[in-house]
Computed example of a mutant assay.
Amino acid sequence: MKLFDHKNRERNDHTRRIYALYEIAHTAVDFLAAVSFLIGSVLFLFPDYETPAVWLFILGSVFFMAKPTLRLLREIQLYRMGQLDSLAGRSS
């Protein structure tokens, strides 16, 4: 068993549910990043709105940074769930 192994997410109903929840969160963060950059880009067309545009670009960057963080957290959680399954199987 290793990180980023597709078998980790298909182990049982609980791992499939965890995977799905992380995918929803990842998609939501991706969407928020895109919206932040789009609105920021439009605001840059108007000099009076340059400061909010910069803040939206910073926010969009934070969202883009959150995407790989979510994936890593998901994989660690799925890996640990597999480790617990293995331990439970050995004690039976």
Rank of each mutant, 00 (worst) to 15 (best):
F64M: 15
S91K: 12
K7S: 13
L78Y: 03
R90F: 08
A28F: 09
A20L: 04
Y19I: 02
H6R: 12
M81H: 11
N8F: 03
S92Y: 12
F37W: 09
E10I: 00
L45N: 15
A66L: 06
P52N: 10
L59W: 08
A25Y: 00
L56I: 00
I76L: 14
D5N: 13
N8K: 09
L78P: 05
T15K: 10
T51M: 09
Q83H: 08
H14N: 10
R9Y: 05
A53H: 07
R90A: 12
L59D: 06
G40K: 04
P68H: 03
Y49H: 12
E10Y: 04
E75H: 00
L3A: 00
K7V: 07
D30E: 10
D85T: 03
Q77A: 14
E75Q: 10
I58H: 01
S86R: 15
E10D: 14
L43K: 10
Q83M: 11
K2L: 12
G82M: 08
L43V: 02
R90E: 13
L87H: 12
V54H: 14
G60E: 00
I76D: 10
W55A: 02
W55E: 13
S41Q: 01
M65R: 10
K7I: 01
E50G: 11
I76A: 10
I39M: 08
T27V: 00
Y49T: 07
D85P: 04
H26S: 02
Q83I: 07
Q83G: 05
G40L: 01
T69D: 06
T51E: 13
R17W: 07
S86F: 06
T51I: 10
S86A: 15
R17E: 13
H14L: 14
E10H: 00
F4Y: 15
G40A: 04
V62Q: 11
H26A: 03
F46S: 06
L56Q: 06
H14W: 06
F63W: 06
L78A: 01
M1S: 01
R9I: 04
L78M: 10
A34Y: 01
G82F: 00
F46M: 08
L87R: 09
M1Q: 07
L32N: 04
V62G: 15
S36Q: 05
T51C: 01
V42P: 02
R11K: 13
T27Q: 01
K67Q: 14
G89I: 01
D5L: 03
S41C: 01
R80V: 15
F64C: 13
R71P: 03
D48C: 02
D13P: 05
S61K: 08
A66G: 00
E23G: 06
L56T: 03
I58P: 05
P52K: 11
G89F: 05
N12S: 05
L56W: 02
S92W: 13
W55D: 14
V62K: 07
